[in-house]
Design a protein around this nucleic acid. Structure first.
Lengths: 239, 239
DNA sequence: TGTATTTTTTAAGTCGACAACAAGTATTCC
DNA sequence: GGAATACTTGTTGTCGACTTAAAAAATACA
């Protein structure tokens, strides 16, 4: 993982009032999701103080918010750490992810505006571009944004919030395993994305649901296969 | 709503290190859910400072957490208020609530332990007792706990968290309208609760789903009827 | 008298410092 | 020499004060 020393410090930057926490929050969140901060690694308030060139108060507030997002865990009176990836609750994660894929896509098919279709299409193209360039980290990020935008078009913020949280967690998982571009899955995803957008634009709820379901299953299988591949690797070490 | 002056101050209480925020958080959360703090009313950090006898820092942290829960809203640089009840997004609320009722009850039917059944039964009895005493506010609270316990038995914390949030929001809505005990609904709920527990214990997923669905519809209809009754009242004023 | 502008006030955002707590480390006693 | 105890260290939790943004009040102007 990234060495704290190599992290860009910005002590001179005089943050505008009210921008402080937002900056810290966004930066740390991104670093956690991109696995630049390892799950389980300690988060030192004092170091962040130096790094962001501000006092502990705004840093602390940002961390409290991250705790609310489930991305950071604080052990009372003793160290706060980046939320570990809990492999035992992966089945529950998959279940919730699949359901939210379906529900948000269904709702999008019902409530989408033409404007939103355009924005979704843009993200679809962004994903296609990332695939063409074989840029894995960009693929993961844009894919998340693509589905988040669809969820937003469904206009139910209860679902949207949970879904974004699940997508973020998925982002960490994919980052964790999906380090090399070595299969044909992205092409399959791209095709499914196209069909998904088409169904949403046609307001075909049944179709949208079906595609979302298949898409979710595909992703779950992908993650599971990476995990079992990883297990096999580790298992071989004990021979 | 409760006058700040009448609120019990506790300046002397020397809270143990680490208990400060928890106390403030729990207290304020409860007051918001019980509508002792009116939706949209300002939350003054300084007043809370006096009331809880501690500095602004822990108060602030509690508020940040409540913002994360969606129970408090902060307008940047200017006032933080108790989250208003947004009537325009009630349909989305109902949709999510219904889905979570179904999903959590289904999962409970699959994953419940005998222990959990016992705890659920206890809460069922608590609800029955509240109905017998015609204690509306207790009914609302115990009902929430009953369903939250079922969700917990389903053992998917993604669903549980969202569901509890929805139940809490529902608690505010019911409090808002359901001030007098004047109909036969509680009896119907009680019956549905019984059938729900039975289905969960029998591990009958289909049945559990059906009952949960009906139960959710019942509650949604209840809230809607209170709202339309309220609308009629307001409408009559403009004549 | 109505509107634009300045002043005041209120509360949020930030800061540096101190106190308390839990581990790790050194020390003492048997 | 080993274990119990005291000390050191690193961080978190809390505090009181200061700074600044934005609303409300007051004033000036047309």
């Amino acid at each position: 993982m990234a060495d704290p020393k190599s992290a860009p410090k910005q002590p001179k930057a005089k943050h505008k009032r009210g921008q402080g926490v937002a900056t810290v929050y966004d930066t740390i969140k991104r670093e956690i999701l991109e696995l630049r901060m390892a799950p389980g690694s300690p988060v030192d308030e004092t170091k962040l103080t130096e790094r962001f060139g501000m006092s502990r108060t705004p840093i602390r507030e940002a961390l409290v918010r991250l705790v609310g997002d489930g991305l950071v865990v604080t052990l009372p009176n003793r160290s706060t750490i980046v939320a570990p990836i809990d492999f035992f609750e992966l089945p529950q994660f998959f279940d919730a992810l699949t359901l939210m894929y379906r529900v948000t896509t269904r709702l999008a098919a019902t409530h989408r505006s033409q404007d939103e279709i355009a924005r979704i299409r843009e993200l679809r193209d962004g994903y296609a571009a990332a695939v063409a360039e074989k840029d894995v980290s960009r693929m993961i990020e844009v894919n998340r944004d693509f589905h988040a935008e669809i969820a937003r078009a469904g206009k139910n913020h209860y679902y949207t919030e949970l879904f974004e949280r699940l997508l973020d967690e998925g982002r960490r998982l994919l980052r964790f395993y999906y380090s090399s571009f070595n299969d044909e899955l992205p092409e399959i995803y791209l095709d499914e994305h196209d069909r998904m957008v088409a169904a949403i634009e046609a307001r075909d709820v049944t179709d949208a649901d079906e595609i979302a379901h298949a898409h979710a299953d595909q992703i779950v299988r992908q993650i599971q296969s990476y995990i079992s591949a990883d297990r096999r690797e580790n298992a071989s070490m004990s021979l």
